[in-house]
């Protein structure tokens, strides 16, 4: 498949100088006090996980994705038990709430990613763990993108989900190890798109649900992220084309697409911070 040739996930040291630290007035000054951490009570299903998350201060560490941004007001990051959907499936979600100025990570979402990657038994466990970590990091940064748009009142023309994906991808590729970790969300969208294809062949209602969703279909998210990864440094990421993660037709436009999107984010954040 697409990713098997590029999944050399060897993370050596994480000296991560992130794109989020670019010098503008809106960002760049650590805002630890602006981030509030919350672990609301849960049922006995997640009692043990909540306790372990609290003991290991996991949300406090996850908030590193948010700290570089000088938020205009307090932002809450919380881990929540989100329950079940009407179809009986766990509500595996993560979301930004503009009314509560909060980012919620459902325990069920971490379980969902765990289930997905731990089933990739063709990979050694450490690679499964790295893919999981990349996908979860991407999710936190994706929600951080929504929060930046919401809290700074940045106009998002077009689909905000795409903008949030772009925000997260740019944050990844600005880091020396980001390209490797970006394999996590890419695997996630590839696996999820395979499930979607099963849906499409099975039941039209699922197809409607898929196409009417605010997110792009997983294949589009996959190729858009691959394009930004390649466009961030085409000579360093030739393998993205070679492995089929990006079509040769789109590849020539990815560098300018990356530059344009990165400049847009920087401009907007600078303006909002000044």
């Amino acid at each position: 498949m697409w990713l098997t040739k590029t999944s050399k996930l060897v993370v050596v040291g994480m000296g991560l100088a992130t794109w989020l630290f670019i010098g503008s007035a809106g960002i760049g000054q650590a805002g630890q006090s602006q981030i509030v951490i919350a672990y609301p009570p849960v049922s006995n299903l997640y009692m043990q996980q909540r306790q372990l998350w609290m003991q290991n201060r996991l949300l406090e560490d996850l908030s590193e994705a948010l700290v570089p941004i000088k938020w205009p007001r307090q932002l809450t990051l919380m881990a929540v038990e989100c329950g079940f959907l009407a179809n009986g499936q766990p509500n595996a979600n993560a979301f930004y709430n503009p009314q509560q100025h909060s980012i919620t990570l459902c325990y069920e979402f971490a379980d969902y990613l765990f289930q997905m990657f731990s089933q990739q038994t063709q990979l050694p466990q450490n690679q499964q763990g790295l893919l999981f970590s990349g996908a979860l990091m991407f999710t936190i940064l994706h929600e951080a993108g929504h929060a930046v748009i919401g809290e700074f009142n940045i106009p998002a023309i077009g689909r905000e989900e795409d903008a949030a994906d772009q925000f997260a991808t740019i944050a990844f590729v600005a880091d020396p190890n980001g390209a490797q970790l970006l394999m996590g969300p890419l695997w996630w969208f590839q696996l999820s798109s395979q499930q979607s294809k099963n849906f499409l062949g099975f039941d039209t209602r699922d197809a409607i649900r898929l196409y009417s969703d605010e997110h792009g279909v997983d294949e589009q998210r996959f190729y858009n992220i691959s394009c930004l990864l390649y466009g961030s440094n085409p000579s360093a990421h030739q393998d993205v084309i070679a492995s089929g993660m990006l079509t040769p037709e789109r590849a020539p436009r990815c560098a300018s697409e990356y530059q344009k999107i990165r400049r847009s984010w920087e401009l907007l954040l600078t303006q909002k911070g000044s």
Partner: peptide, 19 residues
């Protein structure tokens, strides 16, 4: 970002714990 990565890896390890 290092803390973010390590936190995610820790979550993987915690969920993988039996029980």
């Amino acid at each position: 970002m290092k803390r973010l990565f390590l936190a995610c890896l820790s979550i993987w390890a915690l969920i993988a714990l039996p029980g």
